[in-house]
Nucleic acid binder design. Sequence first.
DNA 1: AGATATTTGTTCGTATGTATT
DNA 2: TAATACATACGAACAAATATC
Lengths: 277, 277
Amino acid sequence: MSTPTPTAPRRKRTEVIAEALKDYIAEQGLVPGDRLPQEQHLIDALGASKGTIREALRALEAQGLIHTRTGPKGGAFIAEVSADRSMELLGNYFFFRPPTIHDIYEVRKQLEPALVASIAGLLDAEAFDGLEKVMAYYDHPPATLEEERTQRIKELEFHLLLVEHCPNPLLALMCRYPIRLLMSHTVCLRIYQHPYPELRQRGHDYQQQLIAALRDGDADRASRVMAEHMCAAQALMEEREAMLEKSFFKAAGAASSPSREYLALQGHWPGKTTPTG
Amino acid sequence: MSTPTPTAPRRKRTEVIAEALKDYIAEQGLVPGDRLPQEQHLIDALGASKGTIREALRALEAQGLIHTRTGPKGGAFIAEVSADRSMELLGNYFFFRPPTIHDIYEVRKQLEPALVASIAGLLDAEAFDGLEKVMAYYDHPPATLEEERTQRIKELEFHLLLVEHCPNPLLALMCRYPIRLLMSHTVCLRIYQHPYPELRQRGHDYQQQLIAALRDGDADRASRVMAEHMCAAQALMEEREAMLEKSFFKAAGAASSPSREYLALQGHWPGKTTPTG
DNA sequence: AGATATTTGTTCGTATGTATT
DNA sequence: TAATACATACGAACAAATATC
C-alpha cells in the first residue's frame, strides 16, 4: 500500500516526522501550553533516531509552533504563534520582492479605514490615554534630526496601538504588517532623517480628528478621516521618495549591522571549542 | 558572578547557527539558486557538530529559505520563498485565532477592489482567456451537489487568477490569503455543499461585468464592480452561515486529511490528557 | 548503461547542560 | 547538596541519492 506519489521527489524522513507531529497536534487538539511526548517516546513511537526527531522539532520551532525547555517537566510545548514571529516569516517572502513605498501605502489606504471603523466604540479611557501619550511625542516641531526620526516612528506606533484593539485578527495582522515594513524600510529611514514639517503637522491634525471621531463612536467619520490621512501621507511620502532618489542616486552603504558569528566563515572565529579530543 | 543574565534565556547553539547563516546570506548578498557552504565546511568554520548544523539548516528550510539536494553539486540552496509556503506559515498564526467568514470578507471587501484597479490595462488576451475558461465551470446551474461545490471553488479560483497579475506583491499576497482561507474554511465547505442558485448567478454576472471593465482598461469601473461583488457575496455568505448554524449545531467531524505515517502508529501515541503519568 | 565520487540523510553511543525535587 | 529527568551537543559510521565519467 505504498502510495508511490508519482511526481513527489522522495520526501525526507525529517519532513515526514515534522508533518506527523503537526497532524498529531491537530488530531489530539493540543492547545498552547500542552506538552508533546518526550524525545525518547517519539523515537520509539515513530521509529526514527534522535537526530531525525530533533530536526523535525527544530522545524516546528522555526515556525513558532513549539518551544522547548530542558530539565524535568521540560520538553516540547505547543506555542501560540506570535504576531511578531509571523511577520518575521512574512518578511522572508518579501525579501526578494521588496514592496515599494507606493505598494505599502496602497494597502494601508484600503485597510486602515476599515480598521478604525472596526474599533469605533471599543476603546476605553486607558486606550485613549495611550494614544494621546504617543501623540505627545510629535505635537511640536522636532528640535533635532534625531527627534525628527523618533517622531516618525512614534506616528507609526500610534497606528500600531489602534491595531491592538481590532477584533478581526485577519484585518489586524494585515494592518500591522505594512506599518512594520515602514518602520524598517530603508527608503523610509532615509526619508525620516530629513526635516518634514508638513508631514508631522498634517499627521497630527488627522490623528486628533480621528480620536475625536472614535470618542464619539462614529465609525463612518473615523473611517473617512483615516482614508484622508492615508491619502495625504501617501502623497507626501511618494513625493519625498522621488526627491530623495533624485538628490543622491548612489547606494549608500547600508547601516552596518554589528558583525556576528558568521564572520567565522571568512576566517576568524573566537576559538570556542577546539575539538581536538 | 551570580546569575549572569537573569532575563536572557540562554540561546541554543542551533539558534545561533541558524541566525549566523541568515546573516551570512544577507551579508554575502546570496540570491535564489546560490549555494551555501557544504555541511563539512560549516562544521569546520562554525565549530559545531554535524547534528547542530543540520538542525540549523532544518530551521531555515522550514521557513522556506533554503532547500537541499544530495549528491555531487548538491547542498543547501537559497530559495525564493513561495507564496504557498508563506501562506502556510501564516496559517499557523491563525490556527488558534480563526477568522470568521465576516472577518475574511471584511478584508476582501477592502482589498480586492484595489486589486482589480491595479491590474486594469495589464491583462493580455491569454489572461482573459484563462479567466473565461474558469468561468465556464459555473455559467450554468449545477447538476449535482458535487458540482455545486466545484463551482464555488472555481469561483474562488477566478479571483486567484486576478491576483496573478497584480504588480504589487504586498497587495497580491494579502488578497490571496483570504481566498485560500475560504477554500479550506470548514464553515465554507459546509455552505458550499448546499444548493445556492442565487450565489452562483449573481457572482457570474458580476464577474462578467468585471471582465468587461478590465477589457476597457477602466480601473474605476472594475473597482466599483468588485466592491459590489464583494458586498453581495459577503451578505449572502453571512446569511447562509447563520442559517447553517441554526439548522445543525453539532460539530461534524472535519474532513479527515489523508492518513499519514502517524496513523499507522496511533496505538503508540500517548493520550493527550495524561497528567505526568 | 554502469561505476564512481561527492554530498546530504540517518543512526547510534556518549557526554554535557539545566531545571526540578 | 545530591539525585533525577529531560533536552542539548558531539563524533563516528553507514545509508541513500545523484552528477559525472
